[in-house]
């Protein structure tokens, strides 16, 4: 099985631990990742806030590259990227005029027919049963709070993935790995995402609520599938603790980290050692 791969800036920047972890998992599961050639940034919040046309054009260029190279399904592990790519794809499919205009702007023919998927969907397509049968190291001690954040399921009409209020897709994977996901309230609340830099106070407040509720619900870690969520909950966790005078100490794992651990990979292979909050004892190998 092979997927097209759009890492996005984060996974080639400060969230390179996420990329390493995904690649390690894919290798064990015999799934190939074909990175889009010379992909460009999706524009993220900055583009859709400041320049609507640009926020379609930047993703459209990447979709055009995928179409040119005959890549059908593309994994975009960052939900911001994947939402922007899906949104642009929809806009392209809906209007002939948009297809003409964008093909001109991005200098490649683009129709928006690429199937853009997130990391959860990649695991689903590989097969939860397949993953389950490959588990070497059941995660019996893990009680994760599965954190979806905003853009994995929202806006529901655009991304059309899982139930936007009560998603379960990550829980199903984690249950297959032997973990016992907890039920909690902040699974789809926002962590402040891209405002980390520009408006830190907001991010710390939102992150604190999320960490507090996860811990209060009996979770011993949080599992995310988003580089921004990881930054805000992991890297910023000590700042949260200082500001609110608490001690959460909750390790934040990428979904691929926990899949990889169950498949027998170690902390280093999954770059878990690069996280800020120390991994829990049960994954200290």
């Amino acid at each position: 099985m092979e997927f097209g791969y759009y890492p996005g800036c984060a996974l080639h920047g400060s969230s390179n631990d996420y990329e390493k972890s995904i690649r390690a998992c894919m290798k064990v599961l015999n799934a190939g990742l074909k990175e889009l050639d010379d992909w460009i940034c999706c524009g993220a919040t900055a583009a859709h806030s400041l320049n609507h046309k640009l926020s379609t054009a930047l993703p459209a260029r990447n979709l055009a590259i995928a179409e040119r190279d005959g890549v059908g399904s593309v994994l975009a592990p960052c939900p911001m990227c994947s939402m922007e790519l899906i949104k642009a794809g929809r806009a392209l499919r809906e209007s002939e005029q948009m297809r003409r205009q964008m093909s001109e702007i991005v200098e490649l023919k683009v129709e928006g027919k690429t199937d853009v998927i997130n990391l959860i969907q990649v695991f689903e397509r590989i097969g939860i049963e397949t993953i389950k049968s490959a588990v070497k190291n059941p995660l019996a001690d893990l009680k994760p709070a599965c954190y979806y954040g905003c853009l994995l399921t929202r806006p529901a009409k655009v991304v059309q993935f899982d139930d936007c209020e009560r998603p379960r897709s990550m829980e199903l994977i984690l249950e297959a790995l032997g973990a016992a996901p907890v039920s909690w309230n902040y699974a789809t609340e926002c962590c402040g995402a891209g405002l980390t830099m520009a408006n830190e106070a907001t991010v710390l407040e939102l992150a604190n609520k999320i960490l507090k509720n996860a811990a209060g619900s009996g979770a011993n870690c949080i599992v995310v599938a988003c580089p921004m969520c990881h930054v805000n909950l992991d890297m910023k966790q000590s700042a949260v603790e200082r500001r609110y005078d608490t001690a959460h100490g909750l390790p934040i794992y990428y979904l691929s980290d926990v899949v990889g651990l169950a498949l027998g990979l170690n902390k280093k292979e999954l770059a878990i050692d690069k996280h800020f909050v120390c991994a829990r004892a049960q994954v200290k190998r």
């Binding site: 800036c9 080639h12 940034c41 524009g43 900055a46 806030s49 400041l50 320049n51 830099m197 520009a198």
Partner: peptide, 21 residues
């Protein structure tokens, strides 16, 4: 400052094609 950040972000993309953090 939020606007300044977003402008800086786009400017960065414009020059490099990808984000240089």
């Amino acid at each position: 400052r939020v606007l300044v950040f977003q402008k800086a972000f786009l400017d960065n993309i414009r020059r490099n094609g990808r984000l240089n953090e």
